[in-house]
Design a protein around this nucleic acid. Structure first.
Lengths: 240, 240
DNA sequence: TGCACGGTTCGGCACCCGCCGAACCGTTCC
DNA sequence: GGAACGGTTCGGCGGGTGCCGAACCGTGCA
């Protein structure tokens, strides 16, 4: 080895360790699955990834140890979820970077049912995604409540709108209020951040949309269609 | 292996391959070094990282092959730089995630000279960072040209201000106009995106700040101090 | 009390990856 | 032409890692 080395950036080791957590296909599949914001059991993830339970147990150990996942033991079950919104954003960033590659939906006949439900509407960590997420984001923008042309931020009118809606923006911590998240199926940014989470929570709380089974896919209810039309002028026909 | 596997996310492989590029300490050190936005030769990087030239050559092959770096051959030199702003953002995201860990500047007596110059002002890919970058960002915010409270976006007044300044915002592509980038030394967000790049370019073009030697550190000139005071009311004493 | 089940630990296997030095190639400069 | 130099290729070495099945440990249910 040469002697004349200057001084490698001290952050390099930490960055490498962090990236290594996502640098395995099975662990990456776990992170992507957990991006729905729900908690999965170790067994569910093992079946989802197609590896032995023992293998997945070791992966979970690394992900939890690395701070990417939080775990919760209940009886003989081990539930894991993404540790926080920052981790969710990191995973989003990684997928957004490869989005152009993963283009061209395969469209196998078999799973088009579940796929089309996901494309219609789903959760992305704690906010809305799919055509539903895009429709809401676009409507907010068109009404001057959200600015996307000069960055990504709520306007004053937007702040008022959330206040009138009664959706708690929960300004604790320093999580950004509004943030863009690239929608995987629509290839355009949708609303994320504290406002995106508040809006998603509000829609679920009000029964305006409900989860389909226990999946991340969501569907707009009749009351939801009326509310979205009234509040944001959304043409709900595109969401069916 | 079990048979009952469902269907692993097809993006998992691509995410893992991407993360693997950053999952090595030497490659991470390269990416961090290249985050200054300049082009480095293979030899410079090898010395910087403290590995043999042959080792680094292989690393560069992977990074270029993975699309993270762009290369340019000149004579017997091989120059590499980050491929584009999206890659720079990805590296920023990774470092931002580990920032809390890497806290507490070591403050070795030896390198405090170079360090303090970097802390005063530097480039971060194509925009300004360090106390200079923060001062500019804060001044823009205080003057109502940039909104940070509801997201991160220029205001209409901000758009006008850039127009009056004569800094070309270069709205080609879909690069966001304003974006937050976590400042490594200041631990607060500074302005990135097309506007951040335009501003940095303008300051350098006007001779308001100059690079110190061939490093990423920059220093504000006399003319620059006057301009920053006039245009943004910045107290330039904090930048010395 | 006993059994089924989810999860973990352990040993072992195969593979991949980062590292080096030596040899080699092409450019630049004398 | 020849020497110096930047960069690449190749063989080989050592270590790390993902995977599995088998054994094991608790929990929960009959």
């Amino acid at each position: 080895m040469l002697e004349g080395m200057t001084f490698k950036d001290p952050r390099a080791g930490a960055v490498a360790r962090l990236a290594a957590l996502a640098a395995d296909e099975t662990r990456a599949a776990c992170l992507l699955a957990l991006l729905d914001g729900r908690a999965w059991t170790a067994g569910e993830l093992a079946r989802h990834c197609g590896v032995a339970a023992s293998t997945l147990s070791e992966h979970l150990g690394k992900l939890v140890g690395g701070g990417l996942l939080a775990e919760e033991r209940q009886g003989r079950h081990r539930y894991v979820r993404l540790a926080d919104a920052r981790v969710a954003q990191l995973v989003e960033d990684l997928t957004a970077h490869i989005a152009p590659d993963a283009a061209e939906p395969p469209r196998g006949l078999r799973q088009s049912g579940a796929d089309s439900a996901m494309a219609r509407g789903r959760t992305c960590y704690d906010h809305l995604a799919g055509r539903l997420g895009i429709a809401v984001t676009d409507a907010l923008t068109a009404r001057g409540l959200l600015r996307q042309d000069t960055g990504f931020a709520l306007t004053d009118a937007g702040l008022d709108w959330f206040g009138a809606l009664g959706a708690d923006l929960g300004r604790r911590g320093r999580r950004p209020l509004a943030r863009a998240c690239l929608d995987w199926t629509e290839r355009r940014p949708h609303l994320a951040g504290a406002a995106g989470a508040a809006l998603c929570r509000h829609l679920l709380d009000q029964g305006w949309c409900v989860r389909i089974g226990s999946s991340r896919a969501v569907k707009v209810t009749g009351a939801g269609e009326r509310a979205l039309t009234d509040l944001l002028g959304i043409d709900t026909a595109t969401l069916r």
